[in-house]
Computed example of a mutant assay.
Amino acid sequence: MNNIFNLRRFSQLFIKHTQEYYKTYLLSVGVIVALLAAILGFISYVSDGNLGVKSQYAIFFFFFIGAGSIFTSMIFSELGNSRKSITMLMLPASHFEKYLVAWIYSFLIYQLVFTLSFYAVDLIVLMLQNSGTDEKMALLDLQSAGTPYGMALIAFAVLHGITFLGAVFFEKLHFIKSACLVAVFGLFIILINQPLANVILGVKLEKVVPFAHAAIKEADNYYALEPQSSIKPIMIGMTYTIVMILWIGAYFKLKEKQV
């Protein structure tokens, strides 16, 4: 077991990684904060102070998964440089410990830092916005049914799994190549989704959103088909199963790396 995971060795590796990259991470946080301030401030300005909860959630959602995917794609950037890869692979730590440090930073710590950064900026923008108007805009609530954190987390987890595997698999241009895979996979799903749903249900569907809902049109009326509440946990479980497979694949791909 000590050859796979040792708490003392792992903690030393985690501290070493933090000491080496904390300046880069702090700079990245500064860039995210600046972009969030610019976007939230601009939308608040052009909408005459009507930065509603839905707009806040849309910005949170796309920045959350977009910045997270870029950050994750660069977490194993040393592997693309022969000198840095030798140094990394020769560290007296197991592949699992190196993998775990990268996973914790790119998945857990990123979520915490991004959420805190977003709320810090959002709160300041709303305070400035609400100070000049009688109609006060509410702060985004990620526990609300209309703006759930769970939806953003599922999307981020899937993209994290793909970009995490891509960061290990590809030696160069990790993010671009991973993004191309996501685009090809998404296009494939869109192309086969409606014909497959028509065959399964035995009717011609007017509109089909992958993994979400479908609609049937009769005359001028639309009838939406929503999955039962008992089916949704199964769909979420299947999604996280795919994410786990991607994470496991990334680990075994990292194990193949040798000096």
Results as ranks from 00 to 15, higher is better:
residue 6 N to S: 12
residue 7 L to W: 12
residue 12 Q to A: 15
residue 13 L to Q: 08
residue 20 E to G: 04
residue 21 Y to F: 12
residue 23 K to P: 05
residue 24 T to A: 15
residue 33 V to L: 07
residue 34 A to T: 10
residue 35 L to Y: 11
residue 44 S to F: 02
residue 45 Y to C: 09
residue 50 N to F: 11
residue 52 G to Q: 09
residue 53 V to I: 14
residue 55 S to I: 10
residue 57 Y to T: 00
residue 59 I to W: 02
residue 59 I to Q: 01
residue 62 F to R: 07
residue 63 F to V: 08
residue 66 G to C: 09
residue 66 G to Y: 09
residue 69 S to P: 05
residue 71 F to W: 07
residue 73 S to T: 04
residue 73 S to I: 00
residue 74 M to I: 12
residue 83 R to L: 14
residue 85 S to R: 15
residue 85 S to L: 08
residue 90 M to L: 15
residue 96 F to C: 02
residue 97 E to D: 00
residue 98 K to A: 04
residue 98 K to Q: 11
residue 103 W to Q: 14
residue 106 S to V: 02
residue 108 L to K: 06
residue 109 I to F: 05
residue 115 T to L: 01
residue 117 S to K: 08
residue 117 S to P: 04
residue 118 F to S: 01
residue 121 V to F: 01
residue 121 V to R: 01
residue 122 D to F: 00
residue 123 L to E: 09
residue 126 L to F: 01
residue 128 L to K: 10
residue 128 L to W: 10
residue 131 S to Q: 13
residue 135 E to K: 15
residue 136 K to A: 10
residue 138 A to T: 10
residue 142 L to E: 07
residue 144 S to H: 14
residue 144 S to A: 14
residue 147 T to R: 07
residue 149 Y to L: 14
residue 154 I to H: 10
residue 155 A to S: 15
residue 158 V to D: 04
residue 159 L to H: 07
residue 160 H to I: 08
residue 162 I to R: 07
residue 163 T to C: 11
residue 166 G to P: 00
residue 167 A to N: 10
residue 170 F to S: 01
residue 173 L to K: 11
residue 175 F to D: 08
residue 176 I to T: 08
residue 181 L to D: 00
residue 184 V to D: 06
residue 187 L to A: 15
residue 190 I to D: 14
residue 194 Q to R: 10
residue 202 G to A: 06
residue 202 G to E: 00
residue 202 G to R: 03
residue 204 K to W: 06
residue 204 K to D: 14
residue 206 E to M: 06
residue 206 E to V: 02
residue 208 V to G: 04
residue 208 V to H: 02
residue 209 V to S: 11
residue 216 I to E: 01
residue 217 K to E: 11
residue 218 E to L: 15
residue 218 E to Y: 13
residue 219 A to H: 11
residue 219 A to Y: 08
residue 221 N to T: 12
residue 224 A to C: 11
residue 226 E to W: 09
residue 227 P to I: 07
residue 227 P to R: 02
residue 227 P to C: 02
residue 231 I to D: 07
residue 237 G to C: 05
residue 242 I to F: 13
residue 246 L to D: 04
residue 251 Y to A: 06
residue 251 Y to M: 08
